[in-house]
Amino acid sequence: MKIVVIGGTGLVGSKVVALLSEHGHEAIAASPNSGVNTLTGQGVDAALTGADVVVDVSNSPSFEDKAVMDFFTTSTNTLLAAERRAGVGHHIALSVVGSERMTESGYMRAKLAQEKLIEESGIPFSIVHATQFFEFVKSIADAATVDGTVRLAPVHIAPMAAADVSTAVARAAAGTPSNTVHKVRGPEEFLLTDLIRRGLTARHDERTVVADPESRYFGALLTDRELVPGPDAEIFATTFDQWLAQQAAAPVR
């Protein structure tokens, strides 16, 4: 199959392209750098010519409320229209576990808007809801840092490796449309405060992590389990310690 991966040069997208290629598919990495811009429409029709499947793992460069909403609605509408013209038979999108429960967050509202457009498009689809990536420990800490202290709500989280997220997305792309949401998570649960503290320690980052129930997570006030999927989620195997060991062993670039 010809599978076009929007955001195919990023953290998840590059791994999805590699996995699909290994399994004999014609996987095309599409991004602004390759002349495919889903905001302007530049290069989209050409990229989708002959495509059987489109995978969208692109992300907004800005998390500001209006900017992120504009990004996901514009890019998704552009893609869906081009898919209709090209006769694409399966649209896959990566979204976030708990998006429907965190509507105070502008980012989550934008992801929900993206999902609604896909669900109402008439194009067969599969949506993958993933928990937070291990790779985003530092960015979560940075977003929650005030005067050098990381303030986070002590809520549960079941994070996972980006490589496992990529596997879930690649499987969806190689399979038949589910026309539903498939949830995936890591094998362990942590308190968000403990996860970030451990991640920063592994990076030799000396910032203090403080439990603050009133601290917001990308704009959303959390209670306890918004970041954790239900029992129907697929559990992937990579633990946080295994991932940390892989990072420590990786060659310095």
Rank of each mutant, 00 (worst) to 15 (best):
N77H: 12
A248S: 15
V146T: 13
I3V: 15
S215M: 05
D241P: 01
T145C: 05
T131I: 04
A248W: 10
L11I: 15
G106C: 11
S95M: 14
L48G: 02
I140Y: 03
V68F: 00
A27Y: 01
M108R: 09
K116E: 13
I3C: 05
V44K: 05
E119V: 15
D147F: 04
T193Q: 04
V210R: 02
H90N: 01
A158K: 01
E104V: 07
P177Y: 10
T40N: 13
L191M: 12
R151F: 10
V5Y: 01
A248L: 13
T38D: 10
L20S: 01
A110Y: 00
M69K: 14
S34G: 11
T208M: 08
T40K: 14
F190R: 05
K15M: 11
N59H: 15
K2G: 05
M1S: 12
A245G: 07
E22W: 05
G122M: 01
A153P: 09
T167M: 15
I123M: 08
K183D: 10
A163L: 09
A162R: 03
A168T: 02
V252I: 15
T208V: 08
A211Q: 04
L48D: 06
K66D: 13
L39A: 12
A153F: 02
W243I: 00
L221I: 07
K66G: 09
G89S: 08
A141G: 03
G175W: 08
A173V: 11
I235N: 11
K2P: 06
S75H: 03
V4Q: 01
A249L: 04
G199L: 06
I140P: 01
V96L: 13
V12C: 10
V169P: 02
S60T: 12
I196G: 01
G175I: 11
A237W: 07
A202N: 07
A173H: 04
A29E: 00
A173Q: 08
D241G: 06
S126V: 08
S121R: 12
V44C: 10
G186V: 07
A144C: 06
T73W: 08
L200E: 02
S75M: 11
A174N: 10
V57F: 07
A141H: 05
V228C: 10
D241H: 01
G89I: 05
G10M: 13
L244V: 02
V53W: 04
P213L: 06
V88L: 11
F236T: 12
D164G: 08
T131C: 12
E189L: 14
S178R: 11
D65E: 11
F63D: 01
S34T: 14
A113L: 08
R101P: 02
A248Y: 01
V137W: 00
V16S: 00
V57W: 00
E100S: 11
A248N: 07
L244Q: 06
P32N: 09
T223W: 12
K66T: 13
R207L: 06
G7C: 04
E189H: 10
V88F: 02
V16C: 05
D45C: 03
Q114F: 01
A51W: 03
K183R: 14
V36R: 09
I235W: 04
K15Q: 14
G175M: 09
A248F: 09
A93S: 08
A250R: 14
S139R: 12
H25C: 10
S139T: 14
T238H: 08
P187I: 03
R253S: 14
